[in-house]
Amino acid sequence: MAFEALDELLDESLPLPIAGTIYRVPAPSAAIGLRTQALINAAAVAADGGAVDEQVLGDAAERDLYADVLGTAHGQMVDDAVPWPALKHAALTAMVWIAQDKSAAETFWNSGGAPSQAAPNRAQRRLAAASSTKSRGSTSGTSGRKAPARAAAKKAAPSR
């Protein structure tokens, strides 16, 4: 068995419908992908109260990131006079696609960019993780035997 050509296996574009037109965002270059990943990671660290990587955030501010992540779709959107909020949402969706995958980008797109709609907050993620994690048994070395029937019956009897 031989490896298939990767470009035949992957759909390397992101179709974004805006006002009746499908804009195809092409896959970014490796350099743009790596820079976008670094920017998103730095933003996440900063949002969690961590130290901000000034180099990463400074570099991103110097470049036209939206044009980079949208590729040829950016020029088409500008030529079609797409409203700024739609272009911004498309660029942020492309960033999610680059940093994660198409499924995450679709969730973000369909949420209208509302983080609360796109993903649970930290407390909800922790609660979900805690509720799905099975509790460990006792490690004290004692067994969890049930009380004898006599003691159980005594507890159930009404007091006088």
Rank of each mutant, 00 (worst) to 15 (best):
A31K: 07
A30P: 02
L10M: 11
Q76E: 13
A47C: 07
V45F: 02
L57N: 05
G113S: 05
A31V: 13
S116T: 14
R24W: 01
A43S: 07
A114G: 08
L92S: 10
A31W: 02
L70N: 02
A99E: 12
E4A: 15
A153W: 07
A123V: 14
Y23V: 15
G141H: 03
K102Y: 01
E12S: 13
A152K: 12
A118L: 13
N110Y: 04
A94T: 06
A81G: 02
D7V: 12
D53W: 03
P85C: 03
G50R: 07
H89P: 01
A19M: 04
G49Y: 04
M77V: 12
T21Y: 01
G58Q: 09
S131M: 12
E62G: 13
A157F: 03
A61N: 08
G75W: 00
A91M: 08
Q55T: 13
A99N: 11
L70E: 02
K134H: 05
S143I: 04
S159Q: 12
L6I: 10
G20F: 08
S138C: 11
T93Y: 01
K102A: 15
Q76L: 11
A99S: 10
A147S: 13
G71T: 10
I18N: 09
T107C: 04
A44P: 01
A118G: 12
M95A: 08
A46E: 14
S13T: 14
E62R: 09
S135Q: 06
K154S: 06
A61M: 08
K146I: 07
E8I: 03
A46H: 06
V69F: 04
V78I: 15
R160W: 07
G144M: 11
Q55M: 05
G20H: 04
L34T: 09
E106L: 11
E54S: 11
R126P: 00
R126N: 09
S111E: 03
Q117K: 11
A152Q: 13
V69H: 00
S159A: 11
A130Q: 06
A129T: 08
G49K: 03
A30I: 15
L6E: 12
H74Q: 05
L14M: 14
A2P: 05
N41C: 06
G20L: 08
G113E: 06
G71I: 06
A156E: 10
N110W: 02
M1F: 06
L16D: 04
A114C: 10
V45G: 02
N110C: 05
L39N: 02
D53F: 04
S138F: 06
G50T: 07
R150Y: 02
K102E: 12
K88E: 09
T72Y: 00
Y23W: 10
L127Y: 00
E62D: 14
R35E: 11
A114S: 15
S143G: 15
N121Y: 02
V45N: 06
S138P: 10
D11E: 14
T139Y: 00
Q76A: 15
A42L: 03
T142K: 03
D79T: 05
N41V: 13
G112A: 08
M95N: 01
W84F: 13
L16V: 12
S138E: 15
H74L: 03
